Amino acid sequence: MTKQSFSFMILFMTFLILLSAGIAGCTSQAPSAGPASTITPAPVANTAVVSPANLVLQPQEIPGNFTLVEKGERHASDLSDWARDHGWMSGYYVVYRKNDPAAPSGTVIRQNISVYAEKNATLAVSDTIDGFADWIVKENAMNQSVEKISIPAIGDATGSLKYINKGDNSGVYMIAFAKMNVFEDIQTNGTAADYETAKQLATIAAAKIR
């Protein structure tokens, strides 16, 4: 895979998060008319005092066929109005690329971390999953399909989905969860097996939030 195509994949997955958060800010004004939510709620715990850089998945926690390729801080200027309006404070991200030559070109797992004020991290889960799914159903059904996926509870709120581009049948899995005042999403454009890996990594990531 060329450096150019890999860079495009990273930018594309980043765009998804900005898009879903921006959509969420619009859809949160009224009840959703889309599919039934698969968000798994739980009682909200206290606020964690954390640096998001300390919550990233480390190379030793990732399967051996993935390699760290990119990491860095997230900035308010990179985020949606919804995130800023709901008390976004700081963030970090990390990207791991799959090395298996038999895997689809450009397969990655990306972790995005955001620290919010008070309980707004929990709101970000439903707004991200439901908002993105509703947008596809209402605005982009000709080009994409979306399926919400049931997932065991992680932290205080959890949601998951997969969307598929109808043109080339490529897709992305997304897992979103909140614990205390931390919101995270983990994405992969890989296979169902990579999605299972992403679920395991989400559990590991949640355990870091104390």
Rank of each mutant, 00 (worst) to 15 (best):
G106L: 01
A21H: 09
D85M: 13
G159F: 15
F132Y: 11
V95T: 10
L201T: 05
D130H: 09
S51Q: 15
T188Q: 01
A102P: 06
I154E: 04
F15C: 13
M89W: 06
G190W: 01
T107E: 03
C26Y: 13
V95Y: 01
A207R: 15
I109R: 01
G34Y: 01
L19F: 10
K162N: 02
M1Q: 04
S20N: 04
I149F: 04
M174V: 03
D134Y: 02
N120W: 03
I204L: 13
S37H: 13
K166A: 10
A36Q: 15
S170I: 01
V172L: 01
A48D: 11
T191P: 03
A133M: 07
N120Y: 05
P101S: 12
V50G: 07
V56R: 07
R84E: 08
S80P: 15
G190R: 02
R110H: 10
Y92I: 07
Y93E: 06
A202T: 04
T47Y: 07
V115P: 00
A192G: 06
A192M: 09
A153T: 12
V49F: 14
S114E: 10
V95F: 02
Q58V: 11
P59Y: 09
G106V: 01
A45F: 07
I129S: 04
Q29R: 14
A103P: 00
G87T: 12
V137H: 07
A102F: 11
L11M: 10
F12H: 05
G22K: 04
N140C: 04
R210V: 15
F132H: 08
L18K: 13
Q200W: 06
M89C: 02
A76W: 07
I164N: 02
Y163I: 00
S77T: 14
L123A: 13
Y173V: 01
A21Q: 12
V182Y: 09
A198F: 03
